[in-house]
Amino acid sequence: MSDLRMRIDGREVTATEGMSVLEAARGAGISIPTLCYHEALEPHGGCRLCIVELDFGDWTQLVVSCVYPARADLVVRTRSEKIDRLRRTILELLLAHAPDSEPLRELAEEYGADRNRFEQEASFCIHCGLCVRYCAEVKKKDAIGFIDRGIRKEIAFLPEIAARECEDCKECFPLCPTSYLQAAWVLLDAQAFGA
């Protein structure tokens, strides 16, 4: 594996083939905010918070760093007025669903996001998919999945599998950035297993 040298925020950074820009940055101690990324999982590229700017001299390009492959000689900027503005709006859109989520509130603080900018629609889930992907990729149980699409997309347990697998695992619970997973579980428990 050859080493790839690139510049992130003015610093020389070394990455290896197959890494994403996000991993390269984190490896060098440069922080980029994420909501749907997890080391143990395939990158998903859904929250778009990890967006950064590539500088090609005469032009620039916004890319999402968790899925953008690290390459030699890339010049990356992780903060700019525009990046911050995009991240702020993304956070504001999510805060309309999960106004009390701890990770969201911390990021909101940093980017000056207003949690009341958009009409509240408390469904809590922000669709990061961490629980679903963790269960599928790491545990290989598929006890929880998505249903529907677009604005109606939700996560839901598969009762017949969850009844068997979840009680003793619950490893995905701490991954959830909101309280939704917990709530969905309690609901399922109450309905399906006759609590």
Partner: peptide
């Protein structure tokens, strides 16, 4: 487009929801 958004990424799913509203 809101109806047809796949829902995977936030700017489209949530952004269009708000634009539509």
């Amino acid at each position: 487009l809101t109806e047809e958004s796949c829902g995977k990424c936030v700017p489209c799913r949530e952004g269009l929801r708000q634009m539509h509203r």
